[in-house]
Design a binder for these strands. Sequence first.
DNA 1: TCGCATGATTTATA
DNA 2: TATAAATCATGCGA
Length: 406
Amino acid sequence: MEEQGRLLPPPGRPEPGEPRRQELGEILQQIMGITEQSLDEAQAKYGGSRKHALNCHRMKPALFTVLCEIKEKTGLSVRSSQEEEPVDPQLMRLDNMLLAEGVAGPEKGGGSAAAAAAAAAASGGVSPDNSIEHSDYRNKLAQIRQIYHAELEKYEQACNEFTTHVMNLLREQSRTRPVAPREIERMVGIIHRKFSSIQMQLKQSTCEAVMILRSRFLDARRKRRNFSKQATEVLNEYFYSHLSNPYPSEEAKEQLAKQCGITVSQVSNWFGNKRIRYKKNIGKFQEEANIYTVKPAGSVTHGTQSGGDSPPTPSSAGSGGSFNLSSSSDMFLGLPGLNGDTYPPSQVESLRHSMSQGPYGEGLAPGQLYSPRDVRANGGWQEAATPSSVTSPTEGPGSVHSDTSN
DNA sequence: TCGCATGATTTATA
DNA sequence: TATAAATCATGCGA
């Protein structure tokens, strides 16, 4: 028993070393009723020669047989107490999450896929510096992965070392007392369970780290990115061509989202912001309104326009599933634009429509209602926001935009 | 660095 | 539950 010191985990372990040392001590105690102290005492008291004498004692075989009988009788309770435990659902969850995040399992794909998903979600799908965030996320995830695997390896190594050591001890003990293979298995099982619980702590910490990392990347407010110019143009075109009722239906939102490479809720946010900001400062947006109501067809969107205020229907969408926001060139008439362009009749109609709508308009045709809520919302919108003419600014360009928060 | 622009979130409302 | 309104947080150009 001189190898007493080697029962302890190898030195130089990281922080979890101390709890592990304690736990291993507990295991030994549990398995054999041996503590470091008792071993030390036994060692000091009897020494190696005493052990040898005990082994050679003439009564030893008889004693051994009695012990075997007792063992047989108590074996049942031992066996029953160590029935296979069902797989811990929490451990399963942790494992699944680590796999999904690419921390556990094969390196290729998992991590980068998760990173891509996170980056895509964070950027709304079309962030220009998507790749930067992507690599940043991936690097950090790789760090977590590296630490996780290093720790896991250490734990496994320690577990194996300890198991071997305990088995050696049992083998040695089997000379003086009966040790059944099943008992060894049971003890190995206990050791593995103890190490599993330690591993679970590691997995938990790793999951927490991943969650923090993800939340940082997915916190849209922190990582706000302006939409691409094209996306803004698409949205603006829709907004200004439906100025009398800028409430896209769900279908329209989906189409816009698809076209802009953003989510439907981002489209909703955009329209919400746009409506309120437009309403607050119509004058400032006059110029923009002119640009978008006057813009030649095909500059931003594809396909044909079903009419300025007509609700777009998926069935009327182009082959690419694109949402038709502007007029096709064959609809242009000889109406001169501000920059010398000609206007499509539909947009002229839209313009006229906008002019006829608003506080002085005749109300909306049934076809202009995009959603039931629009009936209510539209009234408020028209009263407050729709200008008498988007081409005849009532306010000069010098008017100041004021988002109350800014 | 500052101020405005803008996307997202929160809260209240119908 | 969609929307208005207020607000927050960040981007971006001068």
